[in-house]
Simulated scan of single mutants.
Amino acid sequence: MLLFRSLTIPLIALSLSSAVLADASHRADSHGPIGVMGEHMHKEGEVMFSYRYMLMEMDGNLDGTSSVSTDEILEDYRVAPENMTMEMHMLGAMYAPSDDLTLMLMVPLINNEMDHTMQMMGGMGGMGMMMPMRSEFTTETDGVGDIKVGGLYRLNQTDDSTLILNMTLSLPTGSIDEKDVTGMSMGNKVQLPYSMQLGSGTYDLKPGLTYTNSQPTYSWGAQTIATIRLDENDNDYSLGDRIMATAWYARPFADTFSWSLRGAYEYWGDVDGEDKKLNPMMKNMVPTADPDLRGGQRVDLAAGVNWIIPGSATNRLALELIKPVYQDLNGPQMETDYSLVLGWQLSL
């Protein structure tokens, strides 16, 4: 009897583990954190529609890793960027013509808003000296960003892991000719600096690799994606290339919930060339117009949750909060305060 028990208990545990793994596609953590895209594949014939709301708040400026105050920026420039809000509504679709290939389409709708402080010489002060005066202004842009098309190809799969080749092409559908009224434009709309534009203006190749691993009580994954600008845009510049690497750990804590922790590193280069439509004097007036002050690197930590809506294993909601823990910027350049990603996914 004791021998029977000693054999039966491990066999039951093994069966339960196998059942969990076999049903891994219906676990809340079968998809990665919502801030990671292209991290899962679909079975032949499956379709998934998705919506993501992404918010990034930027506040203050860095030069390297050191904070730079508005007063310090205005010693060298006429205008200092103060804060920026970047919002994106990402509409996505995935379709699997086979078990080994999943096709993707992503359409972003973007809204950018940046607040500035401008310093000008004002009235006469004591002893007949000109006194500086400050004012504030805001610029805003919105519209369709760069549409991305591509696919995921399964390079290898075992009982508990998958290795995926990511291959995406970013199309230059986002405007690079956005204009608005600034504090120096005398009521006229003028070409805005790089960070306020809606797209890159170039065809960008985004190759990468993704590895995922699912165990009975947890899952984890890692991904690296590069962004390679293939040419120069119509305004005689190209944004800097980028490289991103991230890894995450996720754990179900109920039948329909899972939580995740994620770390990410990203590096991006300065702008190559100069926007021919920008006033040449602007890069001496505001740091956001200087193509040599656009590069940097950042390390983020993120916490997220996935929820499968009860009654359906194909409907899910997810949330991830992302906080930088290290930033080194070619500055003065605006530093990221935090990011938020909220998403909905429906598989058919």
Rank of each mutant, 00 (worst) to 15 (best):
A250I: 05
T288W: 05
E320S: 01
M281S: 09
E75T: 06
A303W: 00
G92A: 10
T8S: 01
S17R: 09
A222G: 12
L163A: 07
G174N: 11
P324L: 05
I308S: 12
T202E: 00
E335C: 07
D272G: 08
R154Y: 05
G343P: 00
Y249H: 12
N111T: 11
S258A: 15
A303D: 12
F253L: 07
D29H: 11
M282T: 13
L230T: 11
H40S: 14
G174W: 04
M58R: 04
V305W: 02
V286H: 01
M106A: 08
M127H: 14
L301H: 04
Q223T: 07
T227S: 13
F137D: 06
G45N: 06
R316E: 15
G174S: 02
R78W: 01
G150D: 07
M41E: 05
S312C: 12
Y77D: 03
T224E: 00
N213L: 06
V47Q: 10
I34M: 10
G343K: 05
Y338N: 12
W259P: 00
N315Y: 02
T217E: 07
M120C: 04
L342C: 10
I147G: 00
H31P: 01
K283Y: 03
R229W: 03
V271N: 07
T212H: 07
T138P: 05
S339M: 15
L105Y: 04
L165I: 08
D255Y: 02
P252H: 10
S347T: 14
H42L: 05
M282N: 08
T256Y: 00
T141V: 04
Q157V: 00
M114G: 03
D300E: 15
L163T: 08
D292M: 01
Y211K: 01
P97R: 12
M1F: 05
R27F: 01
W307L: 05
R294A: 08
Y95S: 02
D29K: 13
P252G: 06
D270K: 07
A93P: 02
A80C: 04
W268E: 07
D234R: 13
A289P: 00
G221R: 01
Y267M: 12
S67W: 04
M334C: 09
K283D: 15
L169N: 05
S339W: 06
A24M: 08
I147V: 15
R52A: 12
N61P: 08
G45I: 01
D159Y: 09
M88N: 09
Y53A: 10
D115C: 02
P310K: 06
T162V: 12
E320D: 02
S18W: 05
P280D: 04
I225M: 15
T314W: 00
V325I: 15
